[in-house]
Every structure is written in C-alpha cells, then in structure tokens.
Amino acid sequence: MKILTNNPWVKEKYKNKYEIHFADVGYLELLELVRDGIHQGDRLLSHPLSGSVKPNETPFKSVLVEEDRGEIDMDSLLIIEDALVMARNLMKNPKLFLEDDQRMNDCRMIDLSLIDSALEK
C-alpha cells in the first residue's frame, strides 16, 4: 500500500508504516500524480474525492493506492478521471479558504481524519 499525499500530517503519522509519496503540490496536481500512477498500474484504494471539503476549499489531499504494476485498472482510471473533471470544475469557482495557520491546520486535520478512517477502521 502507498499513500500519495501533499499533507505533511499524513506523512508524519504514517511514514514508518506505509510507503509515502509526498509531493509539495496543489490539490489538482496531487490528483494528477495519482492518475499518472494508475496509468503505470496503480490501483485506487480510497476515493480521490473523499470528504466534503471541496477542491477549492482545501489545498490538501491524500489518496491510498496499491502498487500493482500489472494491467491498468479501468475502474480506478474511470474514478480518477471523473474526479479530475469534477475537481477542475470546482476549482473554477473562487478559492474558499484562507491560508492562515489555524485554518490550514484544520484542513490538514480533516484530510488526515479521512485517511485514518480508511486505514484504522
């Protein structure tokens, strides 16, 4: 299992437990990295649009994948492409977050909670 993330809290919590692919990029770029991985055989384990905090409302996103390197998983590809379409649409809207420390930490916490819920249930 591998976690693709731009959230330093997810990296910090899980770095000794799972393979972490940390990238200091935006929400959309992170989804594009996930898509690139799927083209190379990764399979999605968690939904790329997890959570109700929309792409224009948080900069943070973490996605669980299984490194397969076999055939391209078409289900994963369809889900990530739909997610990218939706994310691009929503990001046409104004940015709905302020980049002060407290709010950024809240965004990190929610994203971490979504990954926790996938890993710890």
Partner: peptide
C-alpha cells in the same frame, strides 16, 4: 449514510 471521518 455519510461515514467518512471527522465531521463526516
């Protein structure tokens, strides 16, 4: 039912 994590 919504069931994704904190506040969800």
């Amino acid at each position: 039912l919504q069931s994704q994590g904190l506040l969800h």
